[in-house]
Every structure is written in structure tokens, then in C-alpha cells.
Amino acid sequence: MLAYVIRRIFVGVAMLLAMSLVTFTLFFASPVDPAQYACGKNCSPVQREQARKALGYPSRGEGVWESNIKGPAEMWGTFAKGIVKGRQFPADEELRKAAPENVVDCAAPCFGYSTYSIRTVNEMVGEALPVTFSIALAAVILWIFFGVLIGVLAAVTKGSFLDRGIVGTSLFLYAFPSFFIGTFLLTYISIKWSLYPLPSYTSIADGGVGTWASNLLLPAVTLAMLYMAGYVRMTRAFVLESQAEDYVRTARAKGLATRKVLFKHALRAALTPLVTMAGLDFASVLGGAIITESIFNFNGLGKLAVSANTNYDLPVLIGIVLIAGAFVITANIIVDILYAFIDPRVRVG
């Protein structure tokens, strides 16, 4: 078992390294000079050179930006070193001696420094992550609860009008673009009809659990719509499948109440794959619910990514992409290890 866990973690770390290398290659193989964006529109070659130095990108002569294979590899090396050891922006020993207040220290694991916002990426991500985490948590609770409940309801009434209606409605809600649903909830439910107060993120520390949760409802509903249809269909399929199993028939034959058979036996088997899928989906939402956060103006990772993209704030973009990837990879490792605990056959394969 331990060998399997170690092997799985090792593969995960290798995957993360490969992913970051690919990301760097993609971002730096382009003719866009990130230093150009970092120092704004009217930028002299000298200023651009300073911006490049501040960002920690290698210089190839004043005002020259070269996209080649060596560039990304070199920058990836510096980045990886920053993750392990921390970095300084700008990495300039002389400036550090002369004016230490102009050098920003970024302790390990350092994801970079945004010259646009004059802050380290770690700080920006650290502020955005709780918001995204809250939305993701609220959404995952909603979509699992309602997805499973509605799915079971559809399975129990299989073939009836209700079943068809449920499956059809959930498919239709999934098919509407989430930015339509979000805008609808915001402009109609909140603004026009004033049925629900306009949501704005309030942390637990600021407003207590109640305010925190009530502000999350509309964004979470928007996000949950996108995922719920899948869970309804999956729960329905699993419950129908397990109802044909021998152990469910046995439970029924020994005279258990229908509800007990359903929730204690039939649904039990479906729960493992459902929770697995929810875990992986949760991890992918943690990387930023881009559209939901933009619509409701919640300053989470997704919104941060959108504004970083508008300003072409490359260190922030790379940081968010890698953090999001790390979430997905970690969730995969956790799920695999849990599976290996449950099912010994996995360990061998």
C-alpha cells in the first residue's frame, strides 16, 4: 500500500513538473513580449528593460524579445527555483545593497511578482482563493444534494411523466449558458423583482456564517446548474442499475421498507463513484469559477485570471494556471489513493 501511495505521489509530482514546463513553453513561445505589457503603452526600451529585470526574465539586449526554446526553459528554471527557495524582485544584488526597500522579497513557494499590481502573486492568490473556495463549496453542496435527490426521484418514477420531466428540465438548465443563468438571476431575481438581496462576498470573519452563506446562494446556484444535470443522470442510472442487483432484491424480499432499501442499499453503491466525481469537479472549480465570479463580481481566482488576462499580467496568469492544475492533480492522487484503500485490485495495476 505504501509503495502504491509513494508511486502515485511521485507520478503526480512528475505530472506537475511536465505541466508547468508545457505552460511556460506555450506562454513564452509567442511573439508577445510580457515586459511590453508590464510597463504600459508608452514605454521606452530602457523602461522595458527595467520591467523585464523586475519580472526576472532574462535579457537579450535592450528592447529585444526573443521567443525560442531556450527562453522558456531558462524562465522555467528560475520559476522552479523560486518555488523551492524563494526569489527577490528584482534579483539584483547591487540594488539590494544600495536600496533594500526597493527589492521585494518573495519567500518560498514563490509564484512570481506582478509589476502591474506591484504585489507578489502569492498575496493576490491568497486573497482570491477563499472567495473561490467558498463559491465552490456552496455549489458542490447544492449540486450533490439536489442532483442526488432529483436523480433518485427520477429513478423511482422511471418511465413516468415526472421522470421524463425531471431529466428533460435538468438537461435544459444545463444547456443554457451559465452566463445567461447568472445574469438572469442577478438582473431579474435580485435587481428587477428584488426577490433576493444583491450578493456581494462577505467573509465569515466580517459577517458571520449566515451572511457569508446567504451571499453565496445565487453564484452557487449558477455554478451548480452547470454540474447538476450530470449528477441527476448519473444517480438515476446507478440507482436503476443497482435495483436489479441481488442484494437489493434480498433486502426487498426480507421485507425492508422501500425507502430503507433505496437509501441504505441501492444508493449506497452509487455513492462512491458520485463522491469521486464530485471531488474531481470540486477541484476543477477551485481553479476559478471564471464566468460565475465575473458575473457576480466576486474577486476570486477566476475574476483575477480575467483581469490579469486583460492587462496581460503574465506572472499572475501562470501562477493561477499552475495552482489550478495542482488542485486537479492533487484531487486525482487523493481519489486514486482512496480507491486503492477501498479496492485492493487497484494497487496491483
Binding site: A18, M19, T23, P31, V32, G302
Partner: peptide, 25 residues
Amino acid sequence: RLIDLTLSFPSTLMLLALSAPMYAL
């Protein structure tokens, strides 16, 4: 492994973030 690697990228985020450099490319 290539499949695993590709799946671990946050695809919407990548499509958003890569738009400027890849459009230029």
C-alpha cells in the same frame, strides 16, 4: 500519460490565458 497531462490543464482558464500570446503567434 499524455492524456493524463492534457486532462490536468484547467481548459477554460488555459483558453482564456493563452488567447493573447497564441493570437499573436
